[in-house]
Design a protein around this nucleic acid. Sequence first.
RNA 1: CGGGGCGUGGCGCAGUCUGGUAGCGCAUCUGGUUUGGGACCAGAGGGUCGGAGGUUCAAAUCCUCUCGCCCCGACCA
Length: 569
Amino acid sequence: MRLSRYPINTAKESPADAEVISHKLMLRAGLIRRLAAGIYTFLPFGLRTVRKVEAIVREEMDRAGALELLMPAVQPAELWQESGRWEQYGPELLRLKDRHERDYVIGPTHEEVVTDLARRELKSYRQLPVNFYQIQTKFRDEIRPRFGVMRGREFLMKDAYSFHADEASLAEGYAAMKAAYTRMFQRMGLNFRAVRADTGAIGGSASEEFQVLADSGEDAIAVSDADDYAANLELATTPAFDGRRAPPTQALLKVATPGTRTIAELMALLQVPAARCVKTLIVEGAAGDVVALVIRGDHELNTVKAQKLPGVATPLRMATAARVLAATGTAPGFLGPVGLNCRIVVDHAAAALADFVCGANEPDVHLTGVNWSRDLPEAQTADLRSVVDGDPSPSGKGSLTIRRGIEVGHIFQLGRKYSEALKLTVLDPAGKDLTPLMGCYGIGVTRIVAAAIEQNHDDKGIIWPEPIAPYLVLLVTLNHERSEAVRAQADRLYATFSAAGIDVLYDDRDARPGVKFADAELLGIPHCIVIGDRSLAAGKLEYRNRRTGENSEIAVDEMVAEIRRRLGR
RNA sequence: CGGGGCGUGGCGCAGUCUGGUAGCGCAUCUGGUUUGGGACCAGAGGGUCGGAGGUUCAAAUCCUCUCGCCCCGACCA
């Protein structure tokens, strides 16, 4: 494409409401334009990258044997009522009425539609397993859309749904998808991890997220430095308390700690590290009672883990101050496990402590030199906290680091949630009804574009990974208005690359060199050829590599071959 | 939904406190000079100051209501 015929300008400044680098660069480089909150137009440059991502996704899905189809964005409410999600999904589901006052939704996901399709088409176990996928526009009315297309309300998603006769087949299909996803993200040149994820309300036995590592990511993940263990912080674990702890060396002591309610205040007053203190959190129990959760002072309660504990209310609710007073006789700030008259669950790390500090269940008093067994009974232990940097990996090898990630893919073993709700059955070999198991597999196509930029940029602009670059080669002419030779040479190269099917962008604008170089860097095309009188006089052209910064002179006659060599084609 | 902030040419902002009839940079257009890292000179177009109502001789500026956007949090898979 010739830039002189492209009407979208780049910008030196980015709009004030853009926060993360990918959003700023996408606006400045003219990849997207905002239409409404979380709703964006993809301009030609942006769309080209979207299409490249789609092509890779499609190739790998097809290779894995999945079948592409295209389902409607607008879906009748009846299906959602049948699955129960009309009530469950909440305000994120965009609902609308047609002219006959019939209810519809704009699909945030397609389990209902694909299961409806399956129950109409699939009759026999012989048709299983099968995996249907599509690349299609989704709408989720996010509470807070942000970061451009990273968390938009309307976005492109690849969603796939597999149907299986038994668990073994589901596990096989799931593994095939995991392998396909791994290949896709590798091909896109992304630095990512497959991380174990909470299955949440959807349930099911396995779920992994594909997280692109980036500081701006909205998810926290724990990554092992010694093997491939990686998990969402929501469920990352570290080895449990093994029963060994240091012997007591201090006597149990009551100390006056007036007004000292926080761990930070306690550390300052008693000159003890937070890791030697415990905090006692009172949460609502499932039976109308309360449960005390004991965590080391430097650790954070993990709500996902805590609410999975038997006897704890779901969702997790902290007890009110009044409830705490009624149950313990004292107010939050001076609670401790010693002599506490309710169910106590202790985090493994807190259980491993000796000579620790805690509240005395009396106002303005704490205990020091507290030891399990000696001063209070051993209590039930559990994994209650979020792991922190440096915790040992649960695999026993290496330690964990907390990283930020952008979730670009998520694979699930769904089980029979939707096949049961929508009464999908096929006949088994004995002629009996069989309710298939399902898996679902999502990829945020437009989010990948933003995630790729988060990971591939410098202070000048985007640095596209070759496989998803909107163009592979950029031709930049310098002062072609004054040089017929420059223009002719550039035109020839443009024709050559075009004929060879190599995506080439031709900056043939009547602009000054500085403008063209700045835009070249902003747009981030991997390979740039500069055609100017100066080098042309010596029979050379200039080659610039956006990623490595390489800047070399190559003979005119060799340039095309050199580019092809670098592109491997 | 709670808290905070912001709405002034396409973009970035000043002007608001202390009312006096809208300005700067970028971008765009015209002419000229320039030409290997976002040129310079001269000129031009473009804004009912988010919207509605009110106060006032006079409102971007003060008051009321309202809409939109952004940030933090809660919520959500």
